[in-house]
C-alpha cells in the first residue's frame, strides 16, 4: 500500500513537472479548473466568507504557477462537535432521507436525517463542520448552511443564548473565593468536551486540475489529532479510501487528511450537465442562480464530492 502510494506520488510529481498548468478554461466541458479560475473562485470565497484567507505556506513548497501570496486557502479552528460514527448511528436510527423544502433561492438539500433529527440540529445550531461527514448527504446540508451566512446575514433560526445560561455552569461559584480575576474554564459540558476543531484548507491540484480539500485536526485540548483519530470524523465508507492521510503540499509539518481529487472533475461535470440541462450556465465565481444539482443516493460520487461542489462553484456563501 505504502509503496504503491509512493510510486504513484512520484509519477504524479513527474507529470506535474513536465506539463504546464492549465490556463484555458475547460470548466464546462470537463469540470476541471484552470489556475486563473482557481484564483478567481478563491478570491470570491475570501471576500464572501471572511473566515477563509489566502496563505503563502512554506516558502520552500511554493508553486510557481500560483501567486506567492495566494498559494492555498485556509479556514481555522472550525468546530466539529460530534464524531461521524455517532452521526451514522443516528442516521441509521432516523431512517429515511428527506428532501428539505426549497428555500427562496430555489435551493433544496437532501437531508439524510428524518425530520425530527434535522430539527434537533437546528436547535443546536452547529456552525459548520458537524460534521466532516463527507460521505453522507448530511454534509451537503451542513456545509452550505455554514456558508450561507455570508449573504443571508443573520439567520432566522438563530437561537440567541441567554446570558443567564452562560453563568449557570457551576464554575461561577468557584470564583467567589478567588482574587479579582478568574480564568474561566470551559464548562464540563459533554458537548464542549467532545469538541474537536479542524483547520480546513483548499489547494490546487495541478495533476487533476481541481481544488483539493485538506483537514488538520486538533483535539479538545488543542493538540494535533493523530490521523487515525481524524478518521473518526469521516464516514467509514470513505476513510482511507477517498479520504487519505498525506503530506500537505504547502505546509511543512504533520500529516493531513485529504479528499482524493481523482473523481472530482467527473462529478463536477455531472453537476454542470444537470445545471446546463436546466438552462443555467455555471460560472466558477458566481453563485448558480437556479437550483443546484441534487445528488441522489445512487449518485454516490456526487455525495462524496458535494463538499467540493459547494466550495468550487461558489455556492458557498
Amino acid at each position: 500500500m505504502q509503496v504503491k502510494q509512493k510510486v504513484y506520488e512520484l509519477y504524479k510529481g513527474t507529470v506535474e513537472r513536465v506539463t504546464g498548468p492549465r490556463t484555458v478554461s475547460a470548466f464546462l466541458e470537463k469540470g476541471v479548473l484552470s489556475v486563473p479560475e482557481f484564483i478567481l473562485a478563491g478570491d470570491n470565497l475570501v471576500s464572501k466568507c471572511p473566515t477563509w484567507s489566502w496563505e503563502a505556506g512554506d516558502p520552500s513548497k511554493r508553486k510557481p504557477y500560483l501567486p506567492p501570496d495566494k498559494q492555498f486557502l485556509v479556514t481555522r479552528n472550525v468546530p466539529c462537535l460530534r464524531r461521524a460514527v455517532s452521526l451514522e448511528e443516528e442516521y441509521d436510527a432516523a431512517g429515511a432521507e428527506v428532501v428539505l423544502g426549497d428555500d427562496e433561492d430555489g435551493e433544496g438539500w437532501l437531508a439524510t436525517h428524518g425530520v425530527q433529527a434535522s430539527k434537533q440540529e437546528e436547535e443546536e445550531d452547529i456552525p459548520s463542520m458537524d460534521t466532516l461527514n463527507i460521505g453522507k448527504t448530511e454534509g451537503i446540508k451542513s456545509i452550505p448552511s455554514y456558508f450561507n451566512a455570508g449573504n443571508k446575514g443573520e439567520e432566522e433560526e438563530e437561537d440567541i443564548p441567554d446570558m443567564d445560561t452562560y453563568e449557570d455552569t457551576g464554575n461561577y461559584s468557584v470564583a467567589t473565593a478567588q482574587p479579582s480575576y478568574f480564568v474561566a474554564e470551559e464548562p464540563e459540558d459533554d458537548n464542549i468536551l467532545r469538541t474537536r476543531t479542524y483547520d480546513v484548507s483548499i489547494t490546487y491540484d495541478k495533476y487533476y486540475q481541481t481544488p483539493r480539500v485538506w483537514l488538520t485536526g486538533y483535539d479538545e485540548s488543542r493538540m494535533p489529532l493523530k490521523p487515525e483519530l481524524v478518521f473518526e470524523d469521516i464516514s467509514q465508507d470513505h476513510a482511507r479510501k477517498t479520504v487519505t492521510i498525506e503530506d500537505h503540499p504547502h505546509l511543512s509539518a504533520g500529516k493531513h487528511a485529504s479528499v482524493h481529487p481523482c473523481k472530482h472533475a467527473a462529478v463536477m461535470k455531472k453537476i454542470i450537465d444537470v445545471l446546463m440541462s436546466r438552462g443555467v450556465e455555471p460560472e466558477v465565481d458566481k453563485k448558480a442562480k437556479d437550483s443546484v444539482g441534487r445528488p441522489t443516493k445512487a449518485d454516490h460520487g456526487a455525495n462524496n464530492h458535494s463538499l467540493w461542489k459547494d466550495l468550487y462553484m461558489q455556492d458557498v456563501c
Binding site: S180, Y181, P224, G254
Partner: peptide, 17 residues
C-alpha cells in the same frame, strides 16, 4: 468582581518544526 475568559493556545506542529 470582573471575571474574564482565559485565552486558549494552539501551538502548531509547524512552529516546533
Amino acid at each position: 468582581p470582573l471575571q474574564v475568559a482565559a485565552i486558549g493556545v494552539c501551538a502548531e506542529t509547524g512552529f516546533w518544526d
